[in-house]
Structures are given as C-alpha cells and as structure tokens.
C-alpha cells in the first residue's frame, strides 16, 4: 500500500518541525524542506529536500521529489520569514526576501501540487498569523504577507474544491527560537515574560505542538467538511482588548 505523502515547508525548526513529528506519528510519509541542508536531528523516517519555495523551480523540485515518494495528499505551507521594520524602513531587498517566501512561496507550492492533488484529493494547510488581522508594530510587510495567505487560502478552497480542501491557521505567540530571542533582548526578560503571560487567557505561551495539533486535525477526515476557513490558535490573546493586563 502506498503511503500518503505530506510536504512540510520550513520544516527545520519550530512549528515546521513539530508538524513533521506529528504527521509522521499520524502515519504520513513526510517530505520536509528548507533552504538549508537536512538538519542533523531531523527524524530519520522523514525525507528532506534542500530547496527554496520562493523560486518556482525550487517549488517544482520539492513537488517532484514528493510525488516520486507517493501521492501528495497534504501540503503544509509553513516556511516564512519575518523582518521587523516599518514601511518607511523597508528596502526593496526586504520586500523580495519576505514576499518571496511568505507570499510567492505559498503560491508556488500550491501551484506545484494542485494538478495532482485535484485528481486524488488532498488538504492544504497554510500557516498565516493573527498579524493578518491585527497589526504587530514594525512588522509591516510580515503583517501584510499573512493577510495574503488567508486570502489565498479562501481562493484555493473555492477554486479547487471538492477534491482539495484548503485552510489556514493563525498562530499567536508561539515559543520558538525566534520568540525566545525576542524575550532575551528585553530589558527585564522575566518581567517581559510575566507581562506576556498575563495577556493570554490560557495562562501560557503557545508551543509549536499547539499548532501541529491543529494541522493534524485539519488534514484528517475529522475536518472533511472544513475548507476555506482560518483558525486562530493564540491562547485567547486576540479575544481580549489590547489594554495593559491588570489595568482594571
């Protein structure tokens, strides 16, 4: 019996790695990809291809590699870059790098897998962000690129049903190396963390596995009627008014 194949972009660390581990344990064959060589600790059961989703040729190479392994029924577009600048400070090179990965990369990958996936059916999960609807300061292009992801998600769901379902996840603050670096830079890291926790109704920061749990559900038969939707996984943060916690 041929194993269904899941492509996970940006699989080396953080959310991508958690999704890799989870889909492996759920019985998928996994092809991870990234711009770097295969990480030393990447699970032996998973395949790896070094390629950039930002280039159409890179995306095509990833899709071909996966299709040689088996039917690609899952694509998780997780690869993304973050540049902490306002519009005024953003350079053309910043635009190319960020939009290349976050927007064109998602488009490239979807376009590369859709012809086959439309025939035998499958599920695409795009990692968007709560930043698509509420702005993080000094993250202008990142915020905008994530709005693109949620918009493209709806279009793919509309255009490529019934065989392909396409959904997006909007993670909030997920503790990855990127987020930990941010806290380390704070004047008082412990206080910064305390402040951040107070803004989360569930009382903790997100973990990559929290996002992987939602990915696993969305690609499963449990979500057979779910398409074109965006799911927020943020510990309740965006349900609350953005006031200082404990002010009232």
């Amino acid at each position: 019996m041929t194993q269904d194949i899941a492509i996970i972009t940006g699989a080396a660390g953080g959310i991508g790695r958690a999704v890799t581990d989870r889909l492996l344990s759920d019985g998928f064959g996994v092809l991870g990809c990234g711009r770097s060589p295969r990480p030393a600790d990447f699970p032996g059961a998973a395949h790896w291809v070094q390629a950039s989703v930002a280039a159409p040729a890179g995306a095509a190479q990833i899709a071909r590699t996966a299709q040689d392994l088996g039917p690609v029924t899952v694509l998780v577009n997780n690869a993304g870059v973050q540049i902490e600048k306002t519009v005024a400070d953003t350079t053309d090179a910043d635009w190319d790098l960020l939009m290349g990965a976050n927007c064109r990369g998602v488009f490239n990958m979807c376009r590369a897998v859709l012809p086959d996936m439309s025939r035998y059916g499958g599920s695409i999960v795009n990692i968007g962000s709560i930043s698509a609807t509420v702005a993080d300061p000094s993250m202008a292009l990142y915020n905008a690129s994530k709005a693109f992801v949620h918009g493209l998600t709806r279009s793919i769901a509309v255009d490529h049903g019934p065989n392909v379902r396409c959904n997006a996840i909007a993670p909030g603050w997920i503790m990855t190396d990127m987020a930990e670096d941010g806290f380390a830079l704070a004047d008082d890291p412990a206080k910064a963390m305390q402040d951040a926790l107070a803004r989360h109704p569930v009382g903790r920061m997100g973990m990559p596995t929290d996002v992987a749990n939602m990915v696993a559900w969305l690609v499963s038969d449990q979500a057979a009627y779910v398409s074109g939707a965006s799911f927020t996984v943020d510990g309740g943060m965006t349900a609350a008014s953005p006031l200082n916690p404990g002010l009232f």
Binding site: I130, S131, V134, A135, D136, P137, W173, G182, F183, L185, A186, K191, A192, D195, A196, R199, M237, T238, A240, S241, P242, N244
Partner: peptide, 11 residues
C-alpha cells in the same frame, strides 16, 4: 486604531 493592533507586549 485601538483594535487594529495586536496586544502590546513589553519586550
């Protein structure tokens, strides 16, 4: 603009 922004954590 209050609701346009995400929670303003003090990093």
């Amino acid at each position: 603009g209050l609701s346009a922004q995400v929670q303003q954590m003090k990093l």
